Simulated scan of single mutants.
Amino acid sequence: MTVDARIAVLPAGQQKLEIRDVTLDAFGPYEVVVRQKAFGVCHSQLDRIYDLSRTEPMLLGHESIGTVIAVGGQVRYVEPGDEVLITWIPRTPLEGRPPVPSQVTFSEGEVAKTHNTFTWGTHAVVDEQYVVKAPQGTPPDLGSIIGCALMTGAGAVMNSAEVRAGQSVAVWGAGGVGLCAIAGAAILGASPVVAVDVDDDKLKLAQQFGATDVVNAKRTDPVAAIRELTAHEDGTRGVDYAFDCTGIGTNIPVSLAAVRPGIRGAGIRGGADVLVGIPRAPFELDSMDLLNGEKSLLGCVGGSCDPARDFETFVEWTRDGRFDPSALVTDRFTLDELNTAVEALHSGRVRGRAVVEIEG
């Protein structure tokens, strides 16, 4: 079987994507070919785009919704005609066969590679471990962002921290992932849910997703504001959980400072700061705040998610109206506008999540 596709390629040493026509005709035994409906434009991909040390062309993207049109000979999980969700967290990591990263060979012999998957194109060819059958009724807006933004943000709250009703939460960064963390906290019954950002438009959107309070860190000391909002019966102040969705190293000691301390001699440990965004560089912490407050610093990759289990939950949130993916998708583009989408994200003009919709 051959498939004519248009795929975004990031040439080595360049920062602008090229949309190339390619005929896909060689599929591995565990590969799945997906005709795309829509895919998300994730901030983590900017790290690849603006890394000029790259020596090979790359394929990007790791969250999308589409329809299977072909499968390799060893694929048993899906078949042509199935609607699927693509993600970058393996669906079956304990099966013993490591998933194989995707790559595409172009007519001139050039090979473009990935770290795991690619979704930026009309079609994707990915290891079957990176696809999840879409639950019935999954809307395209949800499917386009479930495989990274929703999984990472809401998953951090639900899985990494296991937030319970009545616990207090602060989320640093009200972009796409942060909004999903805010929504997850609100759905799980956290209170208060405090959104921290420097953009009033994003903070306004955060309230739509369940933030009970907002703090503009440009105008207000966020630690002081959060402590004012979170007075506990035991005399401590601060949130039970802070989620740093920015990946900015200087923010991390600040979000840690906003976490409630423990009480020595009473057996009460402090809260936790959860790293959700990817730190771009090493960062420093106030070690005495961490130690004396008996606080915790938790790492979180992909919301600690099990895609096959958790995607069902996220779709259920959408079915019953607790989560509105169309409100999260604030910016829509065509494939030919992908570089415009990347620049909008890089410059901070995307309030929620940018999505590329595939025609046809």
Rank of each mutant, 00 (worst) to 15 (best):
A154C: 05
T117E: 02
A124Y: 02
T138M: 14
G147W: 06
V171H: 01
V163W: 11
G121I: 02
H123W: 00
A211M: 02
V193H: 10
A156F: 01
N216W: 07
E110Q: 09
D141L: 03
P98I: 00
C180F: 04
V157N: 09
V131C: 05
A165D: 11
M151Y: 05
M151F: 06
W172S: 10
I145V: 15
T212I: 05
N116M: 09
A134E: 08
K218C: 09
A165F: 07
A217R: 14
K133Y: 08
T114D: 05
T117L: 02
F118P: 00
A185N: 11
T117Q: 01
F118G: 02
G137D: 13
V169R: 08
P135Q: 06
A195G: 05
S160K: 14
M151Q: 14
E128I: 05
G178F: 01
L94Q: 15
S102L: 02
L203T: 06
V125F: 10
V132N: 01
T122M: 12
I182D: 02
G121D: 07
V169P: 10
I145E: 13
G178A: 09
L203Y: 04
R97L: 12
V171E: 00
S160W: 01
G155V: 00
A161M: 06
E108M: 09
M151R: 13
N216H: 11
N216S: 06
V171C: 04
E108N: 15
I187A: 12
V100R: 12
S191L: 14
F106L: 13
A154P: 03
P140Q: 09
K204Q: 13
V111H: 08
Q208R: 14
P192D: 04
V193A: 09
L205W: 02
V223F: 06
H115G: 15
A217L: 12
V198A: 10
A211R: 02
P139E: 06
F118S: 03
A174P: 01
V171T: 02
V177F: 06
W120R: 07
Y130D: 04
T122V: 11
T152R: 02
A149N: 04
G96Q: 04
D141F: 02
N116Q: 12
A165N: 07
G153H: 02
I187C: 13
Q167F: 06
P98V: 02
A112T: 13
A156R: 01
T138F: 13
S168M: 06
V193N: 10
A112M: 06
F209K: 03
G178P: 06
G147E: 07
V111N: 08
G96R: 05
D141W: 00
D201H: 11
D141S: 15
N116D: 09
A185C: 12
A186N: 15
A124D: 11
D127P: 11
V171I: 12
W120S: 05
V125A: 10
